[in-house]
Amino acid sequence: MTDRVTLADRIEDLLPQTQCTKCGYDGCRPYAQAVARGEAGYNQCPPGGAQGIARLAALLGQPVIPLNPVNGEERPRPLAVIDETLCIGCTLCMQACPVDAIVGAPKLMHTVVAELCTGCDLCVPPCPVDCIDMKPVTGERTGWDAWSPAQAEAARLRHDRRTARLERERRAAEARAAARRAEAAAGSKAPGMTAPEDDEAARKRAIIQAALERARQKKEALAAQGVAPKNVANVSPDVQAQIDAADARRERLDTSNTPPGQASDHAPDPDEH
């Protein structure tokens, strides 16, 4: 019998590595593992399309079946394009991009590196001013006719590097938070004094909060003009979960009246992004 870990590796090698989560999993690797365990169908990857299903069916010794419509539809590969006149530099799209294809900084205009974009759509829902469009760039070509093994491998490498970086940043943020709690518990800081890192954290929170307030005002202005949000039809449960998580982060960042040292232990550290 084929070893399950090896089978998961072989399945992952046949996936396009767009990391779009349309399959119902957090990325291509978790989906491959689920298929190998028999917990997911091999017809749940819209970017791979019919060709991808045929490749997986051949590997698994199963019949070729249609793409599950619950996971989306096969389409020409899109490219995320940011309207620079509307971008407010909130960084939410950067946080959502699974392959670090968006560059920018807080309060500054962001842009998409076209060569790196996998067309995953994940940057669209979190944008508070709806300034991101997904534009088809492969004509009528879909699936593996619109993508290549080299592009897939490059996307996988960027995704793995990003995942490793986020894990390092998470651990560093937890270590800083633990150190601050220990310092506060020891009473080492004089009354009314704050450490430089606390001052910097407060400054970053203020910058983020100001950007989110500008986003809210622009969104209300667009709504008053009858301009509806774009690219949010048929949002998958996983993408909706990302939107909910972003909303929760925004709520937790609304701490302008809370001293830095009294923030919830579960609130994100500003240095984390």
Rank of each mutant, 00 (worst) to 15 (best):
P237L: 10
R180D: 15
P268F: 08
H159E: 05
V235C: 06
A152M: 06
R170E: 13
A201E: 09
I11C: 05
A248Q: 12
P66L: 10
A101I: 01
R181N: 12
V124S: 01
D13L: 11
E39S: 12
R171D: 10
P66M: 11
G139I: 08
C123N: 03
P16F: 00
D238L: 15
P98C: 04
A190L: 14
E251S: 11
C127D: 02
Q19Y: 02
A215L: 02
A263H: 10
P76V: 08
V227I: 11
V64E: 09
I11D: 01
L60M: 08
R162S: 07
Q225I: 03
G192L: 07
I82L: 03
G49A: 13
G143D: 01
C97P: 00
C117A: 09
Q217M: 14
R158Q: 09
A248T: 12
R176G: 09
D83K: 00
P125G: 05
A146G: 11
M109K: 14
E169D: 13
V99M: 04
G61F: 06
D100I: 06
C127R: 00
C28S: 09
H110V: 01
A96G: 06
D265C: 13
A215P: 04
S148L: 05
D3Y: 07
V99F: 04
E169W: 14
V227N: 04
C93T: 03
V70D: 11
Q242K: 09
M134F: 02
T142A: 03
E183G: 12
L116W: 13
G119L: 03
I53T: 10
D145N: 10
P30R: 05
Q17Y: 03
P229K: 00
D199P: 13
P125R: 02
L212V: 15
R205P: 04
R4F: 12
P30A: 07
Q51F: 15
Q95C: 10
I132M: 00
D199C: 15
V227D: 03
I53G: 02
D26L: 12
D265F: 14
Q17E: 04
A186Q: 13
I11Y: 01
C87V: 02
K230C: 00
